[in-house]
């Protein structure tokens, strides 16, 4: 890949990672004033804030690479469903508290593997963002692990809900470990991460945790893919409509 192509690909990667963080942060922020008790409102807001902060760092870097006058908000507020390249699992509605915590577990575990690799990127900015995000993710994972064990090993109802969430989410996890050509090229160039390498450890950790929580990992009998190419579920349109509504209603304004 030429340097120019590489830069273009890095820009696309930064946008993908920014989209991932923004969409999940948006979903988590919906818990504020809706959590099971006050301490959780505060804790969920902290995690949401970490993801919004992460989105701003990735978009900020994308703006720097694009160097065409666009800023973080242009990426977040002025792109459409088809232009967002986040993973599908992140855009699914927040569901109940079990759904949210199981999704967090799946994603936090993925992120901890991913960020540990991205820390070593030869792209200094991505490596720095990853180093910061890694600290946050260690805490996120601690929380989501404990919640899934607590809910799995709680009441009959909490166990049922947690297992059900796992079933509903499982088919969306496969694409996390299926890098497209662009991501593979970036990994080869020492910039990105080959996520295929992360799956074995991810699966192993999950199996141990499921045992502890009295849950079982679902069969791999379905898979939905498409986030990285902008082929989304119907949920993303609604999410973006809400997220972008005020910004788009007053074109060109400062806030």
């Amino acid at each position: 890949m030429s340097e120019d192509d590489l830069q273009q690909a890095t820009l696309e990667l930064a946008l993908r990672l920014g989209d991932d963080a923004l969409v999940l942060g948006q979903r988590l922020s919906e818990w504020v004033s809706n959590a099971p008790y006050l301490e959780e409102d505060i804790a969920c807001a902290n995690v949401a804030l970490d993801f919004i902060g992460r989105a701003r760092m990735y978009y900020g870097y994308a703006a720097e690479l694009a160097a065409d006058g666009r800023c973080e908000d242009d990426f977040a507020y002025l792109r459409s469903e088809r232009e967002f390249h986040n993973y599908l699992i992140l855009e699914l509605p927040r569901g109940d508290f079990a759904f949210t915590q199981v999704r967090q577990l799946l994603v936090d575990l993925y992120n901890s593997g991913f960020l540990a690799q991205l820390c070593r990127s030869r792209d200094a900015t991505l490596a720095a963002i990853a180093a910061k995000a890694m600290k946050e993710t260690r805490y996120h994972l601690r929380r989501s692990r404990e919640w899934v064990v607590r809910l799995g090993d709680g009441t009959e109802e909490s166990k049922r809900r947690t297992q059900q969430a796992l079933e509903e989410l499982w088919g969306y996890t496969h694409e996390l470990f299926e890098p497209d050509t662009l991501e593979q090229q970036l990994a080869q160039a020492g910039i990105g991460v080959d996520t295929r390498m992360l799956k074995a450890h991810w699966q192993q950790e999950l199996e141990a945790l499921a045992r502890e929580a009295g849950l079982h990992l679902p069969q791999n009998d379905w898979a939905v893919r498409g986030g990285r190419t902008g082929y989304h579920t119907e949920n993303l349109g609604h999410l973006l409509m809400e997220l972008q509504s005020i910004h788009r209603a007053y074109p060109g304004c400062q806030w």
């Binding site: 301490e39 505060i42 804790a43 902290n46 805490y139 601690r142 929380r143 404990e146």
Partner: peptide, 8 residues
């Protein structure tokens, strides 16, 4: 409690 103390 430690985690919530951190968050709160």
């Amino acid at each position: 409690a430690l985690e919530y103390a951190r968050d709160c």
